[in-house]
Design a protein around this nucleic acid. Structure first.
Lengths: 167, 167
DNA sequence: GCTATTCCGACTAAAATAGTCGGAAATACA
DNA sequence: TGTATTTCCGACTATTTTAGTCGGAATAGC
């Protein structure tokens, strides 16, 4: 029973977007560097996330990706489903034709298991995780180590805006 | 997020043993035929189940496999762990060296997820499933279709014993 | 001694995973 | 208008895992 890196990368990356949510779009290059995931591979994953309307892409300089909904309305189950196709442990994709066209003896077990698994994962939202004590501070610290000044950059922008308003 | 056939076959086969628990050892040939799993492959799986002390093999004619503990003391998590190696969704096998030797930002998420997943699967015992209404009857019916008279055979034996006692 | 069964290890085909590559389209900014 | 930055797209490839085969040895009942 395992989660492919696709699913793990997907959730990790979404978490990254959630953490930097109020600081403009996050580029895949940033995520790639920080999390040690190849850029091209991330692109593939984000294509799926976009198709499932979990993220929005912004092209051009200053662009990147942002969550298409607030972090408290995105759960782990949908992310994994989006990139990993399914959260299903039945043999027959829940069609009930597992054994010679009939449902096998254990079909109900797997079906129920899948459902409970999905429910379980649905209960975990991005926000829940991002709001854990210390996570935000840790993220900023990590960003600094990685030479990633997205939060600082955003602060500078806001300062600029304030200055212009004053003038 | 998926369960390999290894895990699924493992649980299905164990379920089979549980259903026929009071009818002497079950041969892999029987399971192979009924569940449509190759015999050699089953042998591999049962080697693991045996190593993890979940089943006991009985060699020779009339032999087969039986559960090494009552069905209410065997849960799905251990079966899957035994044949599928692990129920773990972390990247680092829970070592905490996920990102350049340090624990990644999402390590705790995965770690906790794995734990909850395991706990969840631990809560489901073979007995729970076998004792569902109708399962036993369905199993006997299936056995009959498959020309598998293990339960009937056992009944015959008991009749014999009774007869001998009477004589 | 024959047959049914587990037990064991090495081999293999097919599928999934994880990733690369090359380039096109959009857009901000100079 | 050009250039740099970014997403977007599809085809290709290496590696790993899965699912399975094969041949034969050990054990035990009849």
């Amino acid at each position: 029973m395992r989660l492919s890196t696709k699913g793990r990368y997907g959730v990790t990356a979404m978490m990254d977007l959630a953490i930097h949510d109020n600081a403009g779009p996050v580029t895949l290059a940033d995520i790639s560097q920080c999390q040690g995931i190849s850029l091209s591979y991330l692109e593939q994953l984000f294509a799926k996330l976009r198709k499932h309307k979990l993220v929005e892409g912004v092209r051009g300089p200053g662009g990147g990706y942002r969550l298409s909904r607030p972090a408290d309305q995105i759960n782990v189950a949908e992310i994994i489903s989006a990139v990993d196709e399914k959260v299903d442990v039945t043999r027959c994709n829940n069609q009930g034709d597992c054994q010679n066209g009939e449902r096998c003896l254990t079909h109900d077990l797997w079906s129920e298991l899948s459902e409970r698994l999905y429910t379980f994962l649905s209960g975990i939202t991005l926000a829940q995780f991002v709001n854990r004590p210390g996570i935000h501070e840790l993220a900023i610290q990590r960003d600094r180590i990685n030479g990633r000044f997205i939060l600082a950059r955003r602060q500078a922008e806001m300062l600029n805006q304030n200055r212009q308003r004053i003038n």
